[in-house]
Design a binder for these strands. Structure first.
Length: 104
DNA sequence: CCGTTGACCAGGC
DNA sequence: GGCCTGGCCAACG
């Protein structure tokens, strides 16, 4: 993993490894691939593949959903979709935050 | 080339 | 419990 494009692939690979009913955080991924947390979000927002990778399984360390962008879409509805998809996967919620017991 | 930006994080108040 | 600050580091204009 030297190329920056490989970095993207690493992040997506991690998303695929998330078990059903679980979510992960930007910070955990960042540590895993060795980059800063901000860049994780940047990767997902600019180069995500919503049909192939569960980018919606990534939330903030405090359990809040953070953001959710699809193909440059910045509508407030997308964040609602993110929450619904997490629920469909069996991730437990505590009000508007992901239950920490559902984090990996 | 340099300043700003960002799907963040941890710490302090 | 919420808001502010500093730090992080690649990408963008």
């Amino acid at each position: 993993m030297k190329d920056k494009s490989a970095l993207y692939a690493s992040v997506y690979e991690i998303l695929r490894r998330i078990p059903k009913g679980k979510a992960t955080t930007y910070g955990k991924i960042a540590k895993r691939v060795g980059i800063n947390p901000r860049f994780v979000g940047r990767i997902l927002s600019k180069n995500d593949h919503p049909e192939k990778y569960p980018c919606y399984k990534v939330v903030r360390s405090d359990g809040s959903l953070g953001g959710y962008t699809i193909n440059g879409k910045v509508d407030p509805e997308t964040i609602t979709i993110k929450r619904r998809k997490l629920l469909e996967d069996g991730v437990r919620f505590n009000k508007d935050n992901v239950d920490k017991s559902s984090l990996v």
